[in-house]
């Protein structure tokens, strides 16, 4: 008898990583906080007026870049329902869509910021994206980190180098140490040291910081997150009217049925310059997130197959217009 080649598989022993449809670019048309809402619809219209030419520009840039000119561009809008709850979807969303339409902008997807922290519904189950990303942080090691000790952590903070040593003298020690500067690990000549607060806790309640949730939001838009191998928070169309309560709204709503996929190879956010410090913090975080190897490979293979050259480092896939 010739040898029989046997194969045996066990599903629980394999890693199955779902893939996600990808656009070329995901453009964030705006991010609405309570203060913007309180400033009235004029503030929104002003935001869309500033965004409109940039969206046109990015469309034409990608049309040139993609073979055949078929650029897939999707647009999204984020509403803060995490740090403060204001208004209702029924009242707010039509106003946003109307203001966008005045400048010929279509919002393809609308997302809730609180979903970047955690989200639960019948369809997705419970997903704690913020925890998931926190567990994927790999601290930028200062030179001479040999693994002999666990990474130096200030709980709830993340930096891009070595912090200043403590300079306050302990009473028994007497002499104070002179101040020593913090240093950036990958400095070019001089340091730009950044230390970001990821969260704080009052009692048992943890509040994630705005930059941390914004980093989660970027990763979600880049299609780089998976929960138990599945794509978390896939966009869903709205059933019926805009609800009167944020909690009844899906995490990411697909408003435009013809929209290109929500997630994309790259992201562009058009923001007011007042968000610059937040985005520096976001990039400090993103620079220390270890995305799953398999997910990175999936995205790289897909982009290669359609001859789109993608930046290797994920922070380089995130771009901004500050205007």
């Amino acid at each position: 008898m010739t040898p029989v080649h046997a194969t045996f598989g066990e599903v629980a022993a394999e890693r199955r990583i779902a893939s996600v449809p990808l656009s070329h670019v995901s453009v964030e048309l705006g991010h609405l906080y309570m203060e913007d809402f309180e400033a009235g619809p004029a503030r929104l219209r002003e935001q869309f007026r500033r965004v409109a030419p940039w969206l046109a520009t990015i469309r034409s840039v990608w049309r040139e870049r993609v073979p055949g000119g078929r650029a897939r561009v999707s647009t999204c809008f984020l509403v803060d329902d995490y740090f403060s709850r204001f208004s209702t979807p029924a009242e707010l969303v039509p106003m946003i869509l109307e203001a966008a339409a005045e400048h010929d902008l279509t919002i393809d997807y609308l997302a809730r910021e609180s979903a970047c922290a955690q989200f639960e519904d019948g369809r997705s189950g419970a997903v704690e994206l913020a925890r998931l990303v926190e567990d994927r942080l790999v601290d930028d090691p200062p030179p001479e980190t040999d693994g002999s000790r666990p990474p130096v952590k200030e709980t709830g903070w993340l930096c891009n180098g070595s912090r200043s040593p403590l300079t306050t003298p302990l009473q028994a020690m007497g002499k104070a140490r002179p101040w020593e500067p913090p240093t950036q690990n990958a400095k070019r000549g001089h340091s730009i040291f950044v230390d970001v607060e990821l969260w704080d806790e009052r009692g048992a309640r943890r509040t994630w910081s705005c930059p941390f949730l914004a980093a989660v939001w970027q990763l979600l838009r880049l299609g780089l997150l998976r929960a138990e191998g599945r794509v978390p928070l896939p966009p869903v169309p709205l059933e019926g009217d805009w609800p009167g309560d944020w909690d009844r709204l899906p995490a990411v709503v697909r408003i435009n049925p013809q929209a290109a996929p929500f997630s994309a190879y790259t992201t562009l956010s058009v923001l007011s310059p007042r968000f610059l410090p937040v985005e520096l913090a976001v990039r400090t975080i993103l620079g220390q997130v270890a995305v799953d190897d398999e997910v990175l490979r999936q995205v790289a293979a897909r982009s290669e197959s359609e001859r789109v050259r993608l930046e290797e480092e994920l922070v380089d896939r995130v771009s901004y217009v500050f205007t």
């Binding site: 790999v138 990958a186 620079g287 220390q288 997130v289 995305v291 290797e312």
Partner: peptide
């Protein structure tokens, strides 16, 4: 040494 994101890629 390069930025940390290079190594995480």
């Amino acid at each position: 040494r390069l930025p940390w994101s290079h190594y995480l890629a």
